[in-house]
Nucleic acid binder design. Structure first.
Lengths: 382, 382
DNA sequence: ATTCTTGCCGAAACCGGTTTCGGAACTCAA
DNA sequence: TTGAGTTCCGAAACCGGTTTCGGCAAGAAT
């Protein structure tokens, strides 16, 4: 018998109520004349409990509003039913708008399984690692979602060493033992490149994102695949790197356009960088979608509001979060990482930032260099 | 003696290592020849432990890398050292960009005290309440941060009833027993109104946000204070409500401008709505910052990129998150809610969306109605 | 009728901490 | 010398669950 039940309960009007006190497993056991061990086994699907008893127990538990305390379970099982998410907040992180959707996806899917999500933030790689370690040490999470993977990711090394389950949002150099979810960014880049070539563009530039991220090798590969499928040669002079925000995207565009054989089309790996092309074109007196075409990747909201609206490949961050949470929970429950790899495609959003080239590369060069010095200019036709 | 220490430890090369196993409080106790009860008391500042022992214990614990398992502590203390944050993700929530900063603030401050943050999302008021209840039931958090307060907030009622600590981000109708942090939006609105009046504007409109939110009564009050300080009368025809995104802000602006005595200046309670004024002016052939002035509130990044850049009162979401986490932790530790109320001011960011009126209200009316019918127009001079 | 299974559940240990209680040793005053 | 306080720590209960172990009763096999 639950020795505390008398102290904790009060009889009011013939009905037993528990003031300010949770209903514990012993309460359920007492009510049924069983022991708490039996109740526990019944609730957790042990096979040595008769169906009759099992049904009785789960019914009573439901009726009494019994909810096991996850940290009381954790002390024995080692599981807290929580997912960990360590976000690295960089100063120049252009991806913040995604967080809300992404977090909503992760927490939503976790909640549906009655799991919770422990979120922490860090402001450097080292900080991320020590935060991960702290969360593991205190067992605040049973596993982790690792967003924004590097080609060479120290978080993966750490969690592998600690034997803590994790799932990647993105791929990484060494995938052994990794569960993951990723968007086929390479397919999007190939498709964009190919589409632009189909429209008649012959010189198509590629502006990549941060070189440390794994996505950049994939998207670059996609760009090259698109070129070769279109029968175009790769010109290294048409490739820029490390543009993840508007300013960097603008600088890259200006540098590329100031060449003697400028591109008539751009493929950007990151939407926020692609927004910089608009600024560059404003300065250089070019019309986006006519003089210069662009397609990009991510699907940020700003792209829909800019003029002309940006053609892009949109990523569904919420469903990414949902899938990641689901995969991670299964990983924690013991499914092999190799069986937990999912891919999705970005969705093509055709807007108005691309079209058939109004000029050839040569004509564009004349147009540009006949009016401008080839340096940045703050004036120009709007 | 820790009966498990032999089973768990292995001696390798004369050095005791613990393979795959945490160091527990019993390990520390064994090493020092004390009992785990003593170690626990020493570590938790009980007065019946001698200073010598206390120092010995904390030193050994540190050296052995002992970290108490928060859920093991929780089973006795009822505290999990976690803050709860339930975010309501509305479809038309224009405030998403803040989330990253806000969450970074909360988690950062919590982490500094070795607390963690469990985040959950909900998509309706009812969902928010049931999520809160679930988190309380399973004791996934010791207290909650409640962002975006309503005038009449059911979350407050719930947590008050459950006697769970919480802290508001914003004020609410009945503040009894509430700890809170808030930005003085009313002061910002008053200041904006007064500044515009000083510049010579006589008809200043106010476009408020969602009427269910507590901030809207405060900002409206601030607008009225600003008017009266400037010696201007309140004209109800110059007040619009419920504009929290660009489309709603645009509709409000067009309706206000189509009146016979249109405003020459606008005070918006929400930046995202103020962006709609730009769209409205583009349609009506007005120049923002000259024909029409505007000041707003929030400090969203888009405001800096739009032309002309938006003058606004910027809120520091990160430090808000930090302060809230700090207040909540103190609240959970027992500080009275009345002693946990903090206010901060929004920072004035003077940009180019305001100026002396180019025309009086009458002239503006002639300008508008001489060219347009007074209905929405999609054409007009860009 | 006896023995062997099998199904089902009680009893108790256990997880890693916290907290209460009591008593040994040491002071200090009478 | 003794009695009353203090100081400091050990012993054990406790928190709310999970898991192991063993045993009883009913049915099957011999």
């Amino acid at each position: 018998m639950n020795t505390n039940s008398l102290a904790k309960k009060t009889v009011q009007g013939g009905k037993t109520v528990s003031p300010r006190t949770r209903v514990t497993i012993s309460d359920v056991a007492d009510k049924l004349g069983l022991t708490k061990g039996t109740v526990s086994r019944a609730l957790n699907g042990y096979t040595d409990i008769s169906d009759v008893t099992r049904r009785k127990v789960s019914k009573a538990a439901e009726a009494m509003g019994y909810r096991p305390l996850s940290h009381a379970q954790a002390i024995r099982t080692g599981r807290v039913r929580a997912l960990g998410l360590v976000l690295q907040i960089n100063e120049h992180d252009g991806h913040r708008p995604f967080f809300a959707d992404f977090i909503a996806g992760v927490t939503g899917a976790a909640g549906r399984e009655n799991w919770t999500v422990t979120v922490a933030t860090a402001n450097s790689d080292a900080d991320t690692l020590s935060t991960l370690e702290r969360l593991v040490e205190e067992r605040k999470a049973d596993g982790f979602v690792l967003p924004r993977t590097y080609i060479n990711d120290p978080r993966v090394d750490l969690l592998r060493k600690l034997e803590v389950p994790f799932v990647l949002y993105g791929r990484t150099g060494d995938l052994s033992g990794c569960a993951l979810y990723d968007i086929r960014g390479e397919a999007a880049m190939a498709s964009a490149t190919h589409k632009l070539a189909d429209m008649g563009h012959r010189r198509i530039a590629f502006v990549n994102g941060g070189p440390q991220y794994n996505y950049s090798v994939l998207r670059y590969q996609g760009y090259r695949d698109g070129l070769s499928r279109a029968g175009l040669d790769l010109d290294p002079e048409l490739v820029a790197v490390d543009a993840v925000n508007e300013a960097q995207g603008e600088a890259a565009a200006i540098a590329l356009l100031n060449q003697t054989n400028p591109p008539t089309a751009f493929v950007y790996a990151v939407d926020h960088a692609a927004l910089g092309l608009y600024a560059a074109c404003a300065k250089l007196g070019l019309r986006v979608g006519q003089d210069v075409s662009v397609m990009s990747y991510d699907g940020v909201p700003e792209g829909a509001h800019i003029t002309p609206p940006l053609t892009t490949y949109s990523v569904d961050s919420r469903s990414a979060g949902e899938r990641l949470a689901d995969l991670l929970i299964r990983r924690i429950r013991g499914v092999a990482p190799e069986d937990l790899r999912e891919f999705a495609d970005a969705r093509f959003i055709e807007r108005a930032s691309h079209g058939v080239p109004a000029m050839s590369s040569n004509q564009l060069a004349v147009h540009l260099h006949g009016r401008f010095s080839g340096q940045n200019s703050t004036g120009g036709k709007q």
